[in-house]
Design a protein around this nucleic acid. Sequence first.
DNA 1: CGGGATCTTGACGACGATCAAACTTGGTGG
DNA 2: CCACCAAGTTTGATCGTCGTCAAGATCCCG
Lengths: 248, 248
Amino acid sequence: MASIQSGCNRCDKLTARGREVECEDCGLDPICAVLEYSEPESGVPEGILVRRQAVKRGETLFRRDQKFISFFAVKSGSFKAFVPQQDELDQIVGFHLAGELIGTEGMASGHYPYSVRALENSSVCELFLDRLPESGKALDEVQQAVIKLLGQEVAFNRELIASLVHQSAEQRIAGFILDIFRRLERRKMAEQGVTLTMSRGDIGNYLGLASETVSRVFTKFQNRGLLKLDHKMVWIQDLAVLEAISKQ
Amino acid sequence: MASIQSGCNRCDKLTARGREVECEDCGLDPICAVLEYSEPESGVPEGILVRRQAVKRGETLFRRDQKFISFFAVKSGSFKAFVPQQDELDQIVGFHLAGELIGTEGMASGHYPYSVRALENSSVCELFLDRLPESGKALDEVQQAVIKLLGQEVAFNRELIASLVHQSAEQRIAGFILDIFRRLERRKMAEQGVTLTMSRGDIGNYLGLASETVSRVFTKFQNRGLLKLDHKMVWIQDLAVLEAISKQ
DNA sequence: CGGGATCTTGACGACGATCAAACTTGGTGG
DNA sequence: CCACCAAGTTTGATCGTCGTCAAGATCCCG
């Protein structure tokens, strides 16, 4: 639909290795469509939507409690969202993959509720909400979209709570792998295998497990022929059994 | 502000024992204010806001996947929200106390994402969104309010995930008691002690613990002089230590 | 190519689930 | 009003899962 593969004059020196998600598969696309960004020279003022900014591995996109002025879509790469803890290790609260939005939750309170850091060399599109009225487009539609997104987020988190709290390590990890796989598949970013760009420690932190446990379960799954592992690459070999495990 | 203690011609035969939350302490109050419900004979059409409906203990307010047409505020009593599981026990995803809203998450998807059942004889106010345009009031303001609420919900759930997943039984239970206490206090519904209207099993289900563990930790806390228990009543005796425990 | 971070695998122990039994509570009907 | 029964609560004993500590292997980045 709204393809921008040409006509983008930014970020030519993008060093990201990862494939880019197609605009039509991107979570920001509905809003881009409203803004009529399919036309390279639409009447929309400059600076509302900044496309394809490079973010290097380890770089911070924004920090918790920073003022919310924009939200992002992942064009390529991946990110982790985390709540910095004072005395402890950071608590990871989510991962953002290609095509997914980042930071919309900040719209509600006016501040980002978590920090976000790139897991690999990545790129993002950024939408500045404060300048949206200038576009002459309806803020109402964006609001509707945000309500929908927040609703989905709430639903997802409730599922997550429901499952995390009651599930064993194997169930959590099976569910995690399937979740990542499906999210990438949905954006047409999954070949046969997918790359888990986050560390075992990150996965464990997110799922409430020790990194050793993550490692152990990974090898156990591989030994049972459920998946094939090569460092950060994963190939699912028995989807049905993995689903059965994750659903307890 | 918008007090309705008189002029309400409904539910005189309300059997709820519980004290009612004051309108000024109710989560629906901002919306009631917009609707100018403070005036007994405002121009607002009948049937948009239905006040103080009795809900008997064990009665279901709405079921998961039912079409969203309205949301509720708890006027008195308490409710549990749960996702019915096919083969297993239901998964409890939250509790709703006096003054709190129920069902706003359904606004996003158009369907309630969970079922809600009364834990005791209770009463609710119900706001029908489909008839709101008739009121001539701005749907926009309600939308803003909903975005804010959903944002808070997301933030709360993320905190919950962050904590639940890594915390021990004692930490979870200390946090749970403090959460309930503060929520009731905020609505001016906490005397010295509060009533935990849900069963030990419900608490355990919600926190991902066996009911026996909940029971054990309760007695342990009592023996340490952190709180006093009398069946479902709880008096907090050492807030500081409970906080210290919950914060790990 | 080197060194620090990450990953894997093993041994051990603690926390909490499960099973089991006694006791209490609250709701129902005689 | 009391007896009864089902549901909920408490407490004990046992066992499995997973966190912790530790050592070695491997990888990745500069």
